[in-house]
Every structure is written in structure tokens, then in C-alpha cells.
């Protein structure tokens, strides 16, 4: 089977879709089930990417790939998980406004630290030297294989989220989001639940960040802006925050349409690609958010259907 139809541009677009889908699925656990509006997605993702990149490039490991990748990615995942522990602890007893401010502040802090510590991170100049943990020939082949690995990880996240909906843990998350006070009266430790949810989701976001670092092979603090959070948020809200497939459908309709269809197949002027398109992308995603929230707040797939799910699992 040949993949000649997949040019580098298309692979990058697909990778972007898969990456944002993974983040949107994790955000679904927080926003869709537990009603925690995490606007700091890029912070956790960025910590994963930069911790991975710095360890991979700056540390003189006594072993090479794939172990070097595995060790660096594991440490990056743990680092993001620890950041999630800190943020989760800070937001555990805050209301929606407080969560929004803390998570946004956290993401900004990550970007500022990455910029200020330029002797470690490369700052505004960026940092190269990252590579695939394998070499199967041409760059395009490596990119394609890496896209496959990332798809497998995101498919794993999708399966986990799908199972969460069908588990006591998922019910517990929904209860915390729906009525925290009532959940506490039933003996549920809601603060601990939110804390662990943040640790797990942040760690997974960090792993995705590390995998993104491998694909782009050059770390740029421009990646730590609001784009990735906005893309995940817009996709999830368009598809439906409360539905498992909402993240998948929504991201395909936002990032997929924009990064693949519009950028790859529309005859846009070349000079647009550096400045106009990224700005236009953010503007369109922001507009999508506003329109969906105004006219279809539950997204395309609508609200969750616990009644039909319960019938499916336990019968009538």
C-alpha cells in the first residue's frame, strides 16, 4: 500500500487534527463531564513538549533512541502531571470564574517561563535538535509512521474516555459536575476527584505535547499561545462537550476543515500562510465558539443521553 497521495502538508494537517482531538477528548473529561473549564490546556501540553525537548536535546544520555525518547517522554508526562496536581489543588474549591482565571494564568506563566529561560528553552529563537525515535528512510515516511503512533495514542485516549462513560468513575465525575454539594453529602470526596482528574488529564496532555515536539522537531514559543487551547475548546463545543464523539466530530469540522481542506486544497495566496491564515484561524474558531454557544449550546451531537446508555448497559 502506498501513501503517495499524502504529501507533507497533508500529514501535518492530519497530525494537527489527531493532536487536537486527543486534547479535546481530555478536555471533555474536565469540561464535558465534570464541568471544569480548563483554559490552560496549552500550559500542560507545552510543559510536556518543552520538558521533553530540553531533556532530549540538552541532556547527554548514555543510551540512544528509542530509549531516549521513552525516558524523556515519561519524564515530560510526569512533569505535566505534577503541574496538573498543582493547578488541580489550586482550583479544587474554586467556582467557574476562579478556575478560568487560574488555568489561563497558568498557561500564560508557562509561556513566560519558556520565553524567559531562553538559555534552556531557546526562548524566542526556538530550539532545534529533536528527532524521531526511529529512522525508516525518508522524512515523509518517518512523519507518516509518527502520525500512526500518535493516532494509536489518541485512539487509546478515546477508548479510555468511552469506557469512563460506562463506569462508576464516569458517573462520579458527572455527579461532581452536576451538583458538587450533593455529591459530597453522599460521601464523595469531590476535591480529590477533581485533583486526580487534573493529574491524569494533564499528564496525558503532556505526553501529547512531547509527541508534538517529535513531529515539529523545532520548539517555538509561538506554539504556546492560545491557539491549541482555542482549537480544542472550539472543536469540543462544536461537536458537543458532553458526548464522547463530540470531540472527534467537532475537531474534524474545525481543525480538519481549516488545516486540511482550506489550507491544502483551496488556492490561497502563498503570502497568507505566514500571517493571515493563523490569525484567520483563531478568529474563525472564536466565532464558531460564539455562534455554537448562542444557537446550539449542546453542540452538534447534543447533550449526553444517560437514559439510553443505562438501558444499553443494564436493560430496562
Amino acid at each position: 500500500m502506498t501513501f503517495d497521495f499524502l504529501d507533507s502538508f497533508l500529514i501535518t494537517g492530519l497530525f494537527s487534527v489527531v493532536m487536537v482531538t486527543g486534547l479535546a477528548l481530555l478536555l471533555h473529561l474536565q469540561l464535558g463531564l465534570t464541568r471544569i473549564a480548563n483554559f490552560g490546556v496549552v500550559g500542560f501540553w507545552g510543559i510536556g513538549m518543552y520538558v521533553f525537548g530540553v531533556l532530549y536535546v540538552k541532556v547527554d544520555w548514555s543510551f540512544g533512541d528509542p530509549y531516549q525518547f521513552l525516558v524523556c517522554a515519561a519524564i515530560a508526562t510526569i512533569a505535566s502531571g505534577l503541574a496538573g496536581l498543582l493547578v488541580g489543588w489550586l482550583i479544587a474549591d474554586l467556582d467557574t470564574d476562579g478556575v478560568l482565571v487560574v488555568t489561563l494564568g497558568f498557561a500564560t506563566a508557562v509561556q513566560l517561563v519558556a520565553t524567559a529561560q531562553d538559555d534552556i528553552t531557546g526562548g524566542a529563537r526556538g530550539m532545534g535538535g529533536l528527532d524521531f525515535p526511529f529512522d525508516i528512510g525518508k522524512v515523509k515516511d518517518n512523519e507518516l509512521l509518527w502520525l500512526g503512533f500518535t493516532m494509536a495514542v489518541v485512539a487509546g485516549i478515546l477508548f479510555y474516555v468511552w469506557r469512563v462513560h460506562r463506569s462508576p468513575y464516569g458517573r462520579h465525575l458527572i455527579a461532581v459536575g452536576a451538583n458538587e454539594r450533593l455529591a459530597r453529602s453522599l460521601g464523595k470526596s469531590t476535591s480529590r476527584t477533581k485533583l486526580w482528574l487534573f493529574v491524569i488529564a494533564s499528564a496525558a496532555m503532556g505526553l501529547l505535547g512531547a509527541m508534538n515536539g517529535v513531529m515539529v522537531r523545532f520548539l517555538d514559543i509561538g506554539n504556546l499561545g492560545i491557539d491549541i487551547t482555542l482549537a480544542a475548546m472550539a472543536g469540543l463545543i462544536l461537536g458537543g462537550t458532553a458526548r464522547v464523539w463530540g470531540a472527534v466530530v467537532g475537531v474534524f469540522l474545525t481543525v480538519g476543515v481549516f488545516d486540511i481542506v482550506i489550507q491544502s486544497y483551496l488556492p490561497l495566496p502563498r503570502e497568507w500562510y505566514t500571517q493571515a491564515i493563523p490569525v484567520m484561524r483563531e478568529a474563525i474558531f472564536g466565532l464558531t465558539l460564539i455562534i455554537v454557544l448562542l444557537f446550539r449550546p449542546y453542540g452538534i451531537l447534543g447533550d449526553m443521553r444517560r437514559d439510553s446508555l443505562m438501558r444499553k448497559i443494564h436493560g430496562r
Binding site: Y160, R163, V164, R166, S167, P168, Y169, G170, R171, H172, I174, A175, G177, A178, N179, R181, L182, A183, L186, G187, K188, S189, T193, W196, L197, I200, A242, D303, M304, R306, D307, M310, H314
Partner: peptide, 27 residues
């Protein structure tokens, strides 16, 4: 007071379920 997104069965299973089954890895 109720959980607006949970069914009657959900709500009762939530009350009855032991904490050990509500861990993130017990999917």
C-alpha cells in the same frame, strides 16, 4: 436536590457504589 444529568438508576448506583470502584483506573 438532584443530579440533572443522571438517571434514577445512575443516581442510586452513585449512592451505593463504594469509593474503590470510582477510581480513574476502574473503568
Amino acid at each position: 436536590m438532584d443530579f440533572d444529568r443522571l438517571t434514577v438508576l445512575d443516581s442510586l448506583l452513585l449512592a451505593a457504589a463504594e469509593g474503590t470502584y470510582e477510581q480513574p483506573h476502574r473503568i
